[in-house]
């Protein structure tokens, strides 16, 4: 009897992993594939050596944090195309404050950067929830507006010559690990807890899963839509801070096109593009997959334009698979 129960729970665990975390298998297969390709093409272990793994973990920080914010918007049944512009806005504010006040102004710089993200998210949310402008249109517009503002504020020049210590958040080490990893861990711990254990998280899934049913259950759907965008904006700002540290500057071009990488990470991580379904942990694996793909392609010297083409194909495939999965069920 005990044995049967054990078998059953193992079975249900496997079932749950294959259903929610198919991405884990994709990650493993891609890792093995690049290891083999690197051996064949370069004749070395450039891909699977520990230095490169650390490198990838550091690289993935920005996309994975960005994707965590996008996750909240997508489970609520919407989309945010403005995250990469928000990233740039917060990273230039962050750099500007430190440049003006010195390294002691770092805490203030962080607050200012996060506030910038919050404001962009709030504007997105209010336009979408209160004025019924479709999310795609609103955030596409915001993508241009915010990036335009970034160029206006910086006059298109990067903000450089920053004091020492500024770049720690992007390039530093802590306990023998790249510092950004700790930020990723914190953001994902929050995302998992919030989405699975908090009322607001449950309500976001409900709004994304069936907005009418949510409203008829007394849920203030507008409030949770706005909250999703605000959280997305703030989290995008965190990735902007990491980005500024990594580049050791506030760069107006920072994170160009990263919204696509974030959205791919979310969808390939098993989150339904139509909302209402998905796991934050899956998104983390999705982000790792994206990073691995780009890192591997760079190592075997694939041209960056070709990389863009491949990214586009993966984007359509990832969303296509999600659509196909939903269609075949009907």
């Amino acid at each position: 009897m005990e044995r049967i129960r054990q078998n059953k729970s193992i079975k249900s665990l496997i079932h749950s992993v294959t259903k929610n975390y198919a991405i884990i298998f994709v990650v493993i297969v891609t890792y093995i594939l690049f290891t083999i390709i690197c051996r064949l093409v370069l004749g070395n272990n450039a891909f699977n050596r520990p230095e490169n793994t650390f490198n990838m973990l550091r690289q993935m920080a920005i996309v994975s944090v960005l994707a965590a914010g996008e996750f909240f918007v997508i489970i609520s049944g919407m989309i945010d195309l403005s995250v990469a512009s928000t990233l740039a806005l917060s990273s230039i504010f962050y750099a500007m404050v430190v440049k003006a006040g010195g390294i002691t102004f770092l805490p203030l710089a962080i607050v200012v950067a996060l506030m910038a993200g919050l404001v962009v998210g709030l504007i997105n949310g209010v336009i979408i929830a209160k004025f019924y402008i479709p999310p795609f249109i609103t955030t596409l517009g915001m993508m241009l507006i915010v990036r335009g503002c970034v160029y206006l504020i910086t006059n298109s020049y990067p903000i450089t010559s920053l004091p020492q210590g500024f770049n720690y958040v992007g390039r530093g080490w802590l306990f023998g690990l790249p510092f950004p990893i700790f930020i990723v861990a914190a953001v994902y711990a929050f995302a998992i807890l919030f989405s699975e254990k908090k009322k607001a998280g449950r309500f976001m899934f409900a709004v994304g899963g069936n907005e009418d049913a949510a409203a008829l259950s007394g849920i203030n759907t507008k409030k949770y839509k706005i909250l999703a965008y605000v959280m997305c904006g703030v989290i995008a700002a965190i990735s902007g801070i990491i980005m500024a540290g990594r580049l050791d500057s506030g760069h107006p071009n920072a994170g160009l096109n990263y919204e696509f990488e974030a959205i791919i990470a979310v969808v390939i991580g098993g989150v339904s593009f139509s909302g209402g379904k998905g796991k934050a942990l899956g998104v983390l694996f999705g982000a790792f997959f994206m990073t691995m793909l780009l890192n591997g392609m760079t190592l075997i010297s694939i041209d960056s334009n070709v990389q863009n083409v491949i990214k586009g194909i993966v984007f359509i495939l990832a969303i296509g698979l999600d659509v196909f999965k939903n269609r075949s069920k009907k």
């Binding site: 899963g209 069936n210 049913a213």
Partner: peptide, 9 residues
């Protein structure tokens, strides 16, 4: 289906 349930829940 449209107003009563959240199907993926």
């Amino acid at each position: 289906k449209v107003e009563g349930i959240v199907p993926e829940f």
